[in-house]
Amino acid sequence: MDDMKLWFMEKEAVYSTLALFYRGSLSRGLKILRGTDLLEKLFKWENNLTVCRKAAIILGEINGNHLNPKYKEELLEDYQRLFIGPGHILAPMWESVYESKDRLIFGKSQLSVRKFYGEFGLGVSPKEPADHLAFELFFMARLCDVKMDDDLQNIVKALSAMEKFLKDHLCKWVPSWRDCVNSSAKTRFWIEFSNMTEGWIMDNLEEIKEIRRLVL
């Protein structure tokens, strides 16, 4: 049970940190990466070479730019250009954009995501698309916040929800979004960070499948 508790805590930490960056909280995100061993742990993530390699690159870049006063500004400018605009958004962070040729927000997927959130007592303002990448990653972090009171039912419920959300949502569209980032980003950070994000969610899905097989 202690191993399972640690597993959920580690996953929650990664999902929460990823979500911070995609929400645009770069100062807070960089502070976490510089002040914790999160990247070092991912660098040793033997289950997935993509996660290992990209974490190592990001760690090296962050450490190499520690005294660069313009580094955060460069990342923010690229964030704005890639994900916000103005004008044409190069790598939109809404799932709905990737489910049809029209590339519109507020599509079917955001309704499905909103319903999923509601089943766990969470909500997003009707004025905001619920299928933004930051929201989806924060939701995964929330699912990791499991009450570890020796109740196997809680663990199974959390794992089932995580597997379904990854299969039905994140793992479906993040690869296409990642391709957009890779082809349009000016900074190496966002290329490698998006690659690491994709590698993480794909690996997490396979991990959950294996754990559920062993637990059940």
Score class of each variant (00 low, 15 high):
7 W>H: 07
52 C>S: 15
76 L>E: 15
18 L>C: 03
3 D>N: 07
181 V>L: 09
154 N>Q: 04
121 G>M: 05
167 K>F: 10
183 S>C: 01
16 S>A: 12
10 E>D: 11
23 R>P: 00
92 P>D: 02
216 L>T: 07
215 V>F: 11
205 L>H: 04
70 K>C: 04
89 I>M: 12
140 M>F: 02
89 I>C: 09
2 D>K: 10
191 I>Q: 12
118 G>S: 13
192 E>P: 03
24 G>A: 06
197 T>R: 05
118 G>A: 15
10 E>W: 11
210 E>T: 09
99 E>M: 14
142 R>W: 09
190 W>F: 12
116 F>I: 08
109 S>W: 02
201 I>N: 07
97 V>M: 06
174 V>S: 05
184 S>I: 03
21 F>C: 11
136 E>N: 05
44 K>N: 14
32 I>T: 14
170 L>M: 11
19 A>I: 06
44 K>C: 12
106 F>P: 00
70 K>T: 15
13 A>Q: 05
29 G>D: 06
26 L>P: 00
9 M>L: 10
69 P>G: 09
191 I>H: 06
177 W>R: 09
151 D>Y: 05
141 A>M: 10
107 G>W: 07
193 F>T: 00
62 I>T: 07
169 H>C: 06
149 D>W: 02
167 K>M: 04
178 R>M: 12
40 E>P: 00
45 W>E: 12
117 Y>V: 05
200 W>T: 00
180 C>E: 12
145 D>I: 02
205 L>E: 11
184 S>L: 08
99 E>H: 15
63 N>A: 14
131 D>T: 10
140 M>H: 01
188 R>Q: 12
